[in-house]
């Protein structure tokens, strides 16, 4: 519970300058925020996909070259 309160307080402190700026006339656009969440989903999916392919390629490569190295030894 204490941790939750701390996290909430930190988030509040972090975002308070933003809210202060918002009060000074910066427009808050909730619709744009929600619309942009699709990019978060696509972006993270994309990064994990590319990363997964690279990891797979590395594992296969290391297996192949590792065996070759063993044979040479």
């Amino acid at each position: 519970m204490k941790k939750f309160v701390c996290s909430f307080a930190s988030l509040f402190l972090l975002l308070s300058p933003l809210s202060a700026l918002a009060e000074e006339g910066i427009h808050l656009d909730g619709g744009a925020f929600v619309d942009s969440l699709q990019y978060m989903l696509k972006g993270l999916a994309g990064i994990f996909l590319v990363t997964g392919i690279i990891i797979l390629a590395m594992v296969i490569l290391e297996k192949a070259t590792g065996k070759k190295q063993d044979k040479e030894q």
Binding site: H27, L28, G30, F33, M40, V50, T51, V59
Partner: peptide, 26 residues
């Protein structure tokens, strides 16, 4: 240890979260 790359991917969360926050602020 190639699986460490997954952490690099996960730590890009802030980029996409900030994109949404920047949109929120117009």
């Amino acid at each position: 240890d190639p699986k460490l790359m997954l952490f690099g991917a996960a730590a890009q969360f802030g980029i996409f979260f900030t994109l949404s926050m920047a949109r929120l602020f117009g």
